[in-house]
């Protein structure tokens, strides 16, 4: 349904507002496919390009290079009414529920806006749509909540309003940008379950953007990990958790553990340094300056292509869906070839 092919999103840097001073390569050659009814998680640290990717899918940004294909439409070239039509098919859930709701509008007005904008002229029809969606996201009692302003609701309820607004136009694709990271632990799960239910019920495709690996497995089938504007690993979620291949993925998993008193007793092995500048990314593999497995003369020169990872247990290709962009994978393949030869 959604096909992103070799997407580049570069922002031009200007010197004193005039001269060209290079590009911020926020998204640099990202490709993936998403089918209806599938949830895909996009994991990465801040500045890895996941927000730019999301904004480009929502067509808040224009792609610099590459295409986004949505049901056969080239999203990058949409304009005017076509663009509005496309946007009505893509729901958007933001991170900060309070910021995502206009503070001077009532819930009624907030939920009515997308309908008014997208040509629902019949007030009664709008009202029934609002009530239906509110029931669905469990914003009840409806009559009591509609006249309220966002600040009168709890964080969880605010996020439900945001979800309701994203769902009210009956989209095919939902882009959820850290939908629970601003919420309290006790409500997070509730919101995630709600999203999961909506996704299953409406056969939605979902892109779930997060930095928190631990919520991913309850929500999505597939996951890709982004680093410095590129996808470094793509896998079914279970496979990624069991067999993280890219050293960056491994570091992420190492850093985000489950609560356990043992955690306090040992240090975590974290790669040194910080993500590179996207104006001047390192040559070769972008992770190589921080990678302890980096192969001199290879990792710092050639950019690795995504390749299927070697399954540790039976030496077979893991249903060919688990890919990682790392030279180590190639090394491993070579090693295995050497062994089998």
């Amino acid at each position: 349904m959604l096909k992103v092919d070799d997407l580049h999103v570069w922002y031009e840097l200007k010197r004193f507002g005039l001269g060209h001073a290079g590009y911020v390569r926020a998204v640099d050659g990202v490709s993936f496919e998403l089918n209806a009814g599938e949830a895909m998680a996009c994991v990465g640290e801040s500045g890895c390009g996941k927000s730019s990717l999301m904004k480009t899918i929502l067509r808040l940004n224009k792609p610099t290079k590459g295409t986004i294909d949505f049901k056969g439409i080239n999203v990058g070239e949409l304009d005017g009414l076509d663009l509005r039509d496309y946007r009505s098919k893509v729901g958007f859930i933001q991170q900060d529920p309070f910021g995502a709701l206009a503070p001077f509008m009532t819930i009624q007005q907030i939920l009515e806006e997308p309908l008014i904008i997208n040509g629902f002229t019949n007030a009664a029809e709008r009202q029934s749509k609002i009530e239906t969606i509110m029931e669905e996201v469990k914003l009840t009692p409806v009559e009591e909540i509609l006249p309220k302003f966002p600040h009168m609701l709890s964080g969880g309820q605010q996020q439900r309003v945001v979800i309701a607004r994203a769902m009210i136009l009956e989209p095919d694709l939902l882009v959820a940008d850290e939908p629970v990271s601003m919420l309290d632990a006790s409500v997070r799960v509730e919101i995630l379950k709600l999203l999961r239910n909506l996704q299953e019920k409406h056969n939605l495709a979902v892109i779930y953007i997060t930095h928190d690996l631990s919520t991913v497995r309850y929500f999505s089938e597939y996951i890709f990990v982004m680093y410095a504007g590129q996808i470094v690993e793509f896998a079914p979620i279970k496979s990624l958790l069991e067999n993280p291949t890219h050293p960056y993925t491994q570091a992420l998993l190492e850093a985000s553990g489950d609560p356990d008193a043992k955690n306090a007793l040992e240090y975590k092995e974290i790669p040194p340094g910080e993500p590179p500048s996207l104006v001047n990314p390192p040559s070769g593999c972008r992770f190589h300056p921080r990678c302890k497995f980096a192969i001199k003369g290879k990792c710092d020169v050639d950019m690795p292509k995504p390749m299927p990872v070697v399954d540790g247990s039976n030496m077979a290709i893991t249903g060919n869906k688990h890919v990682a962009a790392c030279w180590l994978v190639e090394e491993e393949w070579k090693e295995r070839a050497g062994l089998t030869n």
Partner: peptide, 17 residues
Amino acid sequence: ELPYIEAAQAYGAGSRR
């Protein structure tokens, strides 16, 4: 830069609106 403006764009609000 507030998120609700981004949201409005995402559900198709035009510039004047």
